[in-house]
Every structure is written in C-alpha cells, then in structure tokens.
C-alpha cells in the first residue's frame, strides 16, 4: 500500500516537472522550484492525472484573477510560450509585469457569444392561384 502511494507521489512529481517544462522552463532547479510551488497549491491525496487537472484549474483561476477575465491554463501556457516570458516569474514579486508581458498573446479564438434564435422557416405549399401572390412585407420582424 505504502509502496503504491509512494510511486503515485513520484509519478505526480514527475508529471508536475514535465508540466512546468512545457511552460518553457528549461533550468532544472527552477523547474523543481516551480513544480514544488504548484504541488503546494493543489489538494493532497490526488493521483497524478487528478493533480495535473487540479493544477490546470488552479493556474486558470490565478491567471483569470490577474488579467480580469476568464482564461484557461492552456491559454496562459500559449501566451507564455509565444511571448517567451519567464514562467518562473510566477514565483516572483513582479506578477503584474509578467501579466503585462503575456497579455497581448492571450489569444481569443472567438468573441463572447450573444445567443439569438434563428427560426426554421416553413415551406407549406400553396394552391396554383397563390403562386403569383406578392411576397409579404415583414421587415419589421427583423428590425
């Protein structure tokens, strides 16, 4: 039992190290430091997959608070990679500077949605006499 818990912790740590590496942190010491910080930010007792999902959520929340609108962990990661920003700044004091650096690269795939209905039209048939009837004027429906 203990052995399996220990191996799961090792797996989680390895996954977190790989996770940090994917933010472009290449230095081993820095990677370990950031991974440890993330490890502390997520609940205990999670398996590796759950820990990564929890880290994603935590980072997403953290970044959303900083930039003022909801962003995902993937969005944050893309912005860091595109700008070449130093992800270890996550640990430092100049978080505002870090956010300023990555903000222009926070890509928005689509604008916010404004849902409207698109009514399905009817093609009910008319008699032959009705074929030449003028089209109804109904522009006000769409105004």
């Amino acid at each position: 039992m203990l052995q399996s818990v220990s191996s799961e912790i090792t797996r989680t740590r390895m996954a977190l190290l790989a996770y940090v590496a994917r933010y472009g942190v290449s230095d081993d010491a820095a990677r370990r430091m950031v991974a440890a910080r993330l490890w502390r930010a997520i609940p205990r007792g999670l398996n590796a997959a759950e820990a990564i999902a929890a880290t994603d959520r935590a980072l997403s929340l953290w970044a959303s608070e900083r930039v003022g609108f909801p962003i995902s962990a993937a969005q944050l990661r893309l912005a860091v990679l595109v700008t070449g920003a130093d992800a270890t700044a996550l640990l430092g004091d100049d978080v505002a500077g870090f956010v300023t650096t990555i903000s222009p690269a926070l890509l928005q795939a689509t604008p916010t949605e404004t849902l409207v209905d698109m009514p399905v039209q009817s093609f009910a048939k008319v008699s032959l006499a009705g074929l030449l009837a003028p089209a109804p004027v109904a522009l006000n429906r769409a105004a």
């Binding site: 590496a21 994917r22 933010y23 472009g24 995902s72 993937a74 969005q75 990661r77 893309l78 990679l81 595109v82 890509l107 795939a109 689509t110």
Partner: peptide, 14 residues
C-alpha cells in the same frame, strides 16, 4: 510540441 498543444487546447476550449 508544447506550443501546438497549448494552442490546440486553447481553441478546443468550447
């Protein structure tokens, strides 16, 4: 590729 991965997951969002 970490960048492509992040890009794809970003766009996958919805």
């Amino acid at each position: 590729n970490p960048q492509l991965n992040a890009l794809h997951l970003t766009l996958l969002g919805e």
